[in-house]
Amino acid sequence: MVLKAKVQRSIEIKNDALELGRVCRQILQDVTSDGFSEEEVFAIHLALEEVLVNALKHGNKNNSDKKINIEYNITKNKFEITVTDEGDGFEPEHVPDPRNDENLCKTSGRGMLLIRSYMDKVEYNEKGNSVLLVKNRAK
């Protein structure tokens, strides 16, 4: 059975940190008012910050002419979001594990690990410029 989305939005924004902040706040307001727990909102917030900054910096290379597309919906059971940038994509399986001893003191490279740790599903498209994140609601 497909559950009807209680909230469903599609937003295209400029590749700009302030815009990302505004969208992030809107999404957090939606999940909070829809009754997600404090822990779930924390997890969604963290994953959102990481995935949006990845799109801004690594995907769109801080190019203000580029756009980021965000589609999300909230159902009775989960929060689901797809973030797509206009970059060339990347191969997520080739990102080094920041927990390995040789990477522990690197100043970057932890975003994807956090996204995977806090979300229930993380799925990239073949090109690697679009990612689907799912956070299930606690039963």
């Binding site: 924390f42 963290l46 910050e49 990481e50």
Partner: peptide, 16 residues
């Protein structure tokens, strides 16, 4: 109450 991986990167730079 909240921080991102960018803040962790800053802590590493401070520790260096």
């Amino acid at each position: 109450k909240f921080l991102t991986s960018s803040a962790l990167g800053l802590l590493i730079r401070i520790s260096k």
